[in-house]
């Protein structure tokens, strides 16, 4: 009796897995969720590859990537929706977490994410200059640390925009 229940549950789980695997939209793709606290940006979307700015290094995620959790540093999340696309979708994220799950889904939770082209190159250049000056002029430990955070973020944005 108990055994047949277990068997049935196992068969049901297997069928659900097969159904997910045979969904043609996800045959060679990741299931991609990308959101910030106020809005979802991608919700269960089929995408081919995502490049994540991990705190300990940038990495790309394709289907069947090994499951992992990574913190993100300020940087660019790049999304290739279809194979062969050379123009990747680019979002600048301020930080957050990326989760690669065993079912080939990728969840990215960012604190803030904006389209890279929505960043103002002039404001970024000015920010880099301001915070570099602040870092070298401040002596207070806490203020210096805050200035360094500003510099880190602005430098990452400058690098993303190729504006030094």
């Amino acid at each position: 009796m108990f055994r047949s229940v277990v068997m049935r549950a196992a068969r049901t789980a297997l069928r659900a897995e097969e159904a997910a695997a045979s969904d043609p939209a996800f045959a060679t793709k990741l299931k991609f969720n990308f959101s910030i606290p106020s809005t979802p940006i991608y919700a269960a979307a089929p995408v081919r590859m995502v490049i994540v700015p991990g705190a300990s290094g940038v990495f790309g995620v394709l289907k069947d990537h090994v499951p992992t959790t990574a913190a993100m540093k300020p940087g660019v999340v790049q999304i290739q929706e279809n194979e062969g696309e050379t123009e990747l979708k680019q979002y600048f994220v301020s930080g957050g977490f990326a989760f690669v799950k065993p079912d080939s889904s990728l969840d990215i939770q960012a604190v803030e994410a904006v389209k890279l082209e929505d960043l103002d190159v002039e404001a970024v250049k000015k920010g880099v200059a301001n915070y570099s000056a602040l870092v070298s002029s401040t002596t207070d430990e806490k203020e210096k640390a805050q200035a360094e955070i500003g510099l880190e973020v602005y430098q990452a944005m400058a690098a993303a925009l190729n504006a030094a």
Binding site: S94, G95, E112, D120, G127, K142, A145
Partner: peptide, 25 residues
């Protein structure tokens, strides 16, 4: 180094997000 200065991860994340918003067009 912000960790040593007593800034928490939440505060750090919040500051980073503010800087990104400040740089928008």
């Amino acid at each position: 180094s912000w960790r040593a200065a007593g800034i928490t991860f939440l505060k750090y994340s919040q500051l980073c997000a503010e800087h990104v918003r400040e740089a928008l067009k």
